[in-house]
Design a protein around this nucleic acid. Structure first.
Lengths: 122, 122
DNA sequence: TCACCTAATAAGAATATACTTATATTCTAA
DNA sequence: TTAGAATATAAGTATATTCTTATTAGGTGA
């Protein structure tokens, strides 16, 4: 009886996914943008996005090379309110507002230097 | 930044705890009542209640032999709305409305017959 | 005080989760 | 059609979760 509801909360029960949701509140973003912003690899981002999608929290749309993820607009109002209340670091908000993915996500293909993650955890 | 929020959702990310919250919406209940209603042992119930308490979702109060747990009344409105929306089996609601713990929780001390849980899962 | 009752904790096992690297898939655009 | 880019999946490992049984802790009331 509660399995389905629990799955929804499980999707929310991870700090990385909460940060992703807070980020997507600013604007939709593609996987490579999230992989650059977050301190985890692209496959890990994909796995988180799959959980969010399976829980019905985000939708995806393809544009050119990229798949953009966004928060679904038809969420339960109480759930939507909780997501709206999530905090978001100023740096994260600014990154999304100042970046545009239109040439390439080169960060993905290059090897990250151990000591200098692009914009790791805050 | 999201660890604390994630802890809250982790507390909600389990079907047994969601059922406990739905039950406590009807009235406060002691550990032995929940242990009788749920298909798990008393220590397991205690462990779930600890998680709910650590997440700030429930409070406890002692009365005679028993410790009664209840949903906290000062929850965030959006969170409270989500809990209010949880389904609850009619049988569960009726059990809480027709039972009273005032003599003893004998079920706890006796050994449960393998095939006949008191009011196991629905 | 002390026997009794309820609830909490400890320890350990089975399962689930979240990450990594390596590889496969899917779409774009020349 | 095909090379290349972005994303998804596979496999494996480390950690976290949830249950059990056994035991301890703590409050009640004669």
């Amino acid at each position: 009886m509660y399995e389905e509801q629990a799955e929804l909360f499980k999707a929310l029960a991870d700090p990385v996914r909460l940060r992703i949701l807070a980020l997507l509140r600013i604007r939709e973003a593609c996987v490579c943008e999230l992989a650059e912003l977050l301190p985890i690899t692209q496959p890990a981002v994909s796995q988180h996005l799959r959980k969010l999608r399976q829980a019905g929290l985000v939708r995806e749309r393809r544009h050119k090379y990229w798949i953009y993820y966004a928060i679904r607009s038809d969420l339960d109002p109480a759930l939507s309110a909780l997501i709206q209340q999530l905090p978001l670091a100023t740096a994260d908000e600014e990154w999304l507002m100042t970046h545009q993915v239109d040439s390439s996500c080169t960060v993905l293909t290059s090897v990250m230097e151990p000591g200098t993650p692009a914009l790791a955890s805050d």
